[in-house]
């Protein structure tokens, strides 16, 4: 290809050719296989460059986040499993502790409680631009179970990023932990009606909110709407059995 061809490629992509030029170009695409090949590569490279530079910041954020999750996952894998050797008196102690746990479970059998079912992991929030410090505060507070502080941080973050479903979801959890049921349920209902990845999780926590308030009938109704493919489907079924 000579220089003129590449200028033509660019003008074609930018739709800067006249009708006649465009027709001639398209005919040549059909008849000249070398021209066609070069044009396709040119186009592919344009798209490659466009995405490479346009999404540099978001890509970098993704790479960082991925690396963190990957590292912590593989570190956990490598951690040696501890072998503990017991002395006879420790066996006796272990047995009595087991007995105690048995009793506790037995006592809890009749009425399931929120704490048995709410088991979210520690969070690792997405970093977007200049909200880093506040995100970090929210993340640390949430992970150390300082939900009042986390709730405040999420609230401020949501002022800047009101459509962020991740923030909405975790603020709902924090509110739920603080027994601020109205806030929590408002957010959860919104999420459960949306199409985000938190859709099913939100429904599940909405049910748990009812459970925490001992509104068992409402809880049951909501649990039954959790679809089979939801991550918490099994837990939901278990809870339904206990409540029924």
């Amino acid at each position: 290809m000579d220089e003129q061809d590449y200028i033509l490629f660019e003008n074609y992509i930018l739709e800067a050719l006249s009708e006649t030029e465009k027709d001639a170009f398209e005919t040549r695409l059909k008849t000249d296989s070398k021209f066609n090949e070069s044009f396709n590569t040119y186009k592919e490279l344009s798209s490659f460059l466009e995405h490479k530079f346009e999404n540099e910041a978001t890509s970098a954020a993704f790479h960082n986040n991925l690396k963190n999750i990957s590292n912590s996952y593989f570190e956990k894998q490598k951690a040696p499993k501890k072998v503990i050797s017991f002395k006879p008196w420790q066996f006796a102690m272990a047995a009595s502790i087991l007995l105690l746990i048995g009793f506790t479970i037995f006592n809890n059998f009749s009425s399931p409680v929120y704490e048995d079912f709410a088991n979210y992991d520690s969070i690792n929030l997405t970093v977007r631009g200049d909200q880093d410090a506040l995100l970090k505060t929210a993340e640390n507070a949430f992970n150390s179970k300082d939900f009042a502080k986390a709730d405040e941080a999420f609230k401020s973050l949501m002022l800047m990023d009101k459509d962020n479903t991740e923030l909405k979801f975790y603020r709902a959890i924090a509110s739920l932990e603080l027994n601020k049921f109205d806030t929590a349920e408002g957010l959860l209902i919104g999420l459960s009606k949306g199409q985000s990845v938190y859709k099913n999780k939100a429904t599940w926590y909405l049910a748990l909110s009812k459970l925490k308030q001992e509104e068992y009938d409402d809880c049951l109704e909501i649990l039954k709407t959790i679809p089979e493919d939801a991550e918490d489907y099994k837990a939901a079924q278990k809870l339904i059995k206990k409540l029924d």
Partner: peptide, 20 residues
């Protein structure tokens, strides 16, 4: 497809789930 969408949104929750 939720896993692909989650990756695209840099959703930590989903990325963690993919690893697990």
């Amino acid at each position: 497809q939720k896993y692909i969408d989650g990756l695209l949104k840099n959703n930590s929750f989903i990325i963690q789930a993919i690893y697990d």
